[in-house]
Design a protein around this nucleic acid. Structure first.
Lengths: 236, 236
DNA sequence: GAGTTTTTTTGATCTATATCAAAATATAGA
DNA sequence: TCTATATTTTGATATAGATCAAAAAAACTC
């Protein structure tokens, strides 16, 4: 981890409205900025934090791409999410003051750090910030329950379709192409997230390719038929 | 729903430390009490709220047992949780101001309601309450990610063992027997929660019975070998 | 840029869990 | 208490996805 102390600048950040400062006034953002610790770089493959680490700060992904995974005693791991610009890492640690997952950068990335104690103080000063943060936490609950639905009641093709459509939407919200995806994670990571084996993920991608839903070239995926994918997700 | 306005009395509540007032001083609890809307009864089979309902309040389960489930377009449903005394219903709705699941009472139950607007105001007055509430939201995230691990990487027997051990722990924390469980939900509900079919749940319960891990008589389950169940969960 | 390692694809086969079916119980209603 | 309905159990069979295996393609390393 590179601790070069670049001062955060939420005010000028392009993804401000997708991140913690969403919905804050300029003055409020300024106050938030003053309390942000610093920006730090996490190289591809490095961990931002690991299971068991003491919880001190939340991290907002500035640039790059992360995965979080929890480890079962016996070595099995479950990928619980993939985070991109504007998304917050560390929310799960608030409950126990310890991180309960590993956060690993899947490409060279940068995060903005804010000490949680500081952040809570700010929440007391700015009811608006606190209100938005409650929503952020709740949104994570909704997301997690969506994954439960995926894992609990959808078939493998539906899961993968839902995964790709979700990724595409999030890229699109960040003004990146919503049809040209570069997957930062391995087939195994995708499989772990979706409760499937990597071979199954690979086979289904090939099948989608054959059905002209996607064009798959390794980790480069182009969505050719968004409609078709959506139909797969909904239609039983 | 019975709207008889029984005044809430967190102060005198036996499960106070498992609920929203956890960790608050007597004075703080008094203030919280003054802002609780009322207690209300939900009869077995009735909904406390349904998907799409406007979100106004959080509900703390006072007595009884609930299940929450989200509905997929095509009719499939996924049970996302079972809530008992002290646990909070409605956390997922904060993000969108709409309920995204149904909350159904599985036995005659009572809940304590608090308007969320009021609650947020209180959070501004009592940093302690806000701090605890952040933890409550985070704890729900941790719980959900535990379910992801369950659904994504555990086999059917392990899932059911984990489910039973979890229920037993929660009953025990409420000074009820941690070995004599009365399941309030159907095999189908359990199956939906665990990503299994009801027949599979039934078969595994029978198998556990044969292996003297449990004594199963319909919905009455006695845990005979907690150790054995734990071994199942951990050991691959 | 050749060599090593990691990731991905594809095929053949196996297996855990689903599905279909029917009897046995339990629960609720009159 | 009797009847109707819903739930649970158990068996027989089917199947989606796992596992095992090996080649092909990418991605690092020196």
């Amino acid at each position: 981890m590179d601790f070069s102390e670049l001062k955060s600048v939420c005010g000028g950040c392009t993804i401000r409205e997708l991140c913690l400062p969403a919905g804050l006034s300029d003055e409020e953002v300024l106050l938030l900025d003053q309390h942000m610790a610093h920006r730090q770089v996490v190289k591809k493959g490095e961990s931002l934090y690991r299971t068991g680490d003491a919880f001190r700060s939340l991290f907002a992904v500035s640039t790059g791409f992360f995965k979080t995974s929890i480890l079962h005693e016996d070595g099995r791991a479950q990928v619980t999410g993939f985070q991109m610009a504007g998304e917050i890492l560390g929310l799960d640690a608030i409950s126990t003051d310890q991180h309960i997952c590993d956060a690993v950068a899947l490409e060279d990335s940068a995060v903005c750090e804010i000490t949680f104690d500081r952040f809570e103080e700010l929440g007391q000063l700015m009811s608006n910030l606190q209100h938005r943060f409650n929503k952020t936490l709740s949104r994570e609950i909704v997301r997690d329950q969506g994954v439960m639905l995926l894992l609990g009641s959808m078939r493998s093709e539906e899961r993968l379709a839902a995964f790709l459509v979700n990724l595409a939407k999030r890229f699109a919200a960040r003004k990146q192409s919503g049809s040209e995806l570069v997957l930062r994670m391995t087939r195994e990571d995708i499989g772990s997230y979706l409760g499937l084996k990597l071979e199954t993920v690979s086979r289904i991608l090939s099948r989608f390719h054959d059905q002209h839903l996607l064009e798959v070239r390794g980790r480069n995926v182009r969505i050719l038929d968004q409609q078709g994918l959506n139909k797969l997700i909904e239609g039983s």
